[in-house]
């Protein structure tokens, strides 16, 4: 009886070890997929940032030649939200940086011949003061934050929270 109990204990311990190994493997795999998603999401964020950066700094500076400087007091003080920008397949013109602030989220894909992963992209824009702290009034610095998270039809996102890619654009 004692012998059988000891043998059962050995089996139990081994099964536990096996289960523990499998759990670690699942955790490692998730970590690997998450790192891969982060890499792709960063590529999407950089691409989105180039779309924003290609626009004028402010509505007041759009079309103004490079050798002219617009005074900060003319800059937009409150940003429009909810735009569906033309650059992302919508109908709103979005011709300056703050037009992308809290725009309608878009789905952007990372595509190669062997994969296609969809990412949900959101953009936030705010003014920064000379100490690079958020400012309620217009300044010549706008911080653009791109938030990117993977989306899948049949399973939850690998990224627990969106990656943040931030650039500060300065008007001189």
């Amino acid at each position: 009886m004692q012998q059988t109990l000891l043998a059962m204990l050995a089996l139990l311990i081994t099964t536990f070890l096996h289960f523990n190994f499998m759990q670690t493997q699942v955790r490692d795999d998730n970590q690997i997929y998450r790192a891969e998603m982060e890499e792709m999401a960063t590529g999407i964020a950089m691409q989105t940032m180039e779309v924003v950066r290609a626009r004028a700094f402010d509505a007041a500076t759009a079309g103004v030649p490079g050798d002219s400087v617009v005074d900060v007091s003319n800059f937009t003080s409150s940003f429009t939200t909810g735009n569906h920008c033309k650059a992302f397949g919508g109908s709103d013109r979005c011709n300056d940086v703050d037009d992308f602030h809290e725009m309608e989220p878009i789905i952007s894909s990372f595509e190669t011949p062997d994969i296609r992963i969809d990412f949900r992209v959101e953009i936030e824009v705010q003014y920064l003061d000379s100490s690079l702290q958020p400012s309620a009034s217009p300044t010549n610095r706008k911080e653009v934050t791109i938030l990117v998270q993977d989306v899948h039809d049949s399973q939850p996102s690998f990224l627990r929270e969106p990656i943040q890619f931030t650039e500060t654009l300065t008007y001189m």
């Binding site: 079309g63 650039e167 008007y171």
Partner: peptide, 8 residues
């Protein structure tokens, strides 16, 4: 069209 710099 205008001078804009960025850091990220």
């Amino acid at each position: 069209t205008e001078t804009m710099t960025g850091s990220g």
